[in-house]
Design a protein around this nucleic acid. Structure first.
Ligand SMILES: [Zn+2]
Length: 325
DNA sequence: CGTGTTTGACCGGCGC
DNA sequence: GCGCCGGTCAAACACG
């Protein structure tokens, strides 16, 4: 649970030095300027007198910045933990009151799983029960009525907007997916593809991928469930990877938006065709502290909604970090 | 030959 | 009860 601190640390570290979305060369940020020149100029000053003074000033600035980041990190972590507690309270509350008349999505899914357990869907039920999968007796699983487990496994639902290649719905997000179906839906002329996570055997995570109605160059991926394995190490082709000519993907944190209806959406840009930064919050100019604050809040809200997103995000961030080095 | 994709069939939920 | 629709299965197929 508290590995979130590590994640947040890496996140905050990324926000400044990498200058995401900050590819405008003429930029003159106030406090970020110290960030960008700090590491560049540390080794380039040769005046012996001024050098120590400059270095000390530099050090002070960096220390101050470090403190600020630490404070921000603490605040965000607290907020994250608070939201997480709130979420857990909500889920446990929803799972406990038995006579709740309004059937939730979880209940529907549960009913569906239970109904399908008398035949070929046994493995599905076992998988939905989280972790130790097929060895368990399906009957036992059914009797146990894994409300909380199923609810927990199903709540995380994240819409990921990604730019897909020409006419394929294959979105490379680091995990390994096996396609098991495709359907044309009513509200969207483009077909919807169904994937299961095959990165680890028995991983219950599914995703649906469909092109956006309004923008056919984007696909919307809906993730369901939590991975029962460690996140994949970010695909080596993430930033370097035009090696095999396939498309690759880089997470661009700026795409974080928050749907009013619930699911968080993040946008993934593909390095190959053109790094499009869709859904960047346009109300805020980038480079400003407010922008980063807003982004941090959005990241926090997104992370509280989907642990698998946490994993993916951490993987992507780490990958870029390694790649930079 | 093993693995992953395609695609038509099937199933259950839901509205009428 | 019937038809529609979303989700899933599994045989056929493609590919290395
Ligand atoms: Zn998985």
């Amino acid at each position: 649970m508290d590995h979130s601190a590590c994640l947040w640390a890496s996140l905050d570290l990324k926000l400044y030095p990498l200058r995401l979305f900050d590819d405008t060369p003429g930029r003159q940020g106030h406090e970020k300027e110290t960030q960008s020149i700090t590491f560049d100029e540390l080794g380039c000053q040769h005046s012996p007198k001024d050098e120590t003074g400059a270095l000390v000033a530099e050090l002070n600035q960096v220390s101050a910045e470090n403190r600020r980041l630490t404070e921000r990190l603490t605040a965000v972590c607290e907020k994250y933990n608070a939201l997480r507690r709130q979420l857990e309270d909500c889920t446990s509350f929803n799972a406990h009151p038995p006579p709740s008349s309004a059937p939730s999505i979880d209940e529907i899914n549960k009913k569906r799983k239970a109904a399908g357990s008398n035949g070929r869907n046994n493995h599905l039920l076992a998988i939905a029960g989280n972790s130790h999968s097929c060895s368990s007796d399906p009957e036992d699983l059914k009797n146990r009525l894994p409300k909380e487990e199923i609810a927990k496994a199903k709540i995380s639902r994240v819409y990921v907007r990604a730019e897909a290649s020409e006419n394929s719905l294959m979105v490379n997000d680091g995990y390994q997916w096996r396609k098991y179906g495709q359907k044309v839906t009513r509200d969207n002329p483009s077909p919807r593809a169904y994937f299961k996570c095959s990165f680890a055997p028995g991983c219950p995570v599914k995703k649906k991928v469909q092109r956006s109605v309004e923008d056919q160059t984007l696909v919307v991926a809906t993730y369901e469930g939590e991975h029962n394995h460690l996140p994949p190490f970010p695909q080596q082709e993430a930033t370097s990877g035009v090696t095999d000519g396939r498309r690759s993907m880089v997470m661009t944190l700026g795409g974080l938006t928050s749907d009013s209806t619930g699911p968080a959406t993040i946008s993934l840009g593909l390095t190959k065709p053109k790094p499009v930064r869709v859904t960047t919050p346009t109300t805020q100019p980038i480079n400003t502290p407010e922008f980063y604050k807003l982004m941090a809040e959005q990241v926090a809200s997104s992370l509280t909604k989907d642990p698998s997103f946490t994993a993916a995000l951490a993987a992507a961030v780490t990958g870029r970090f390694l790649n930079q080095n």
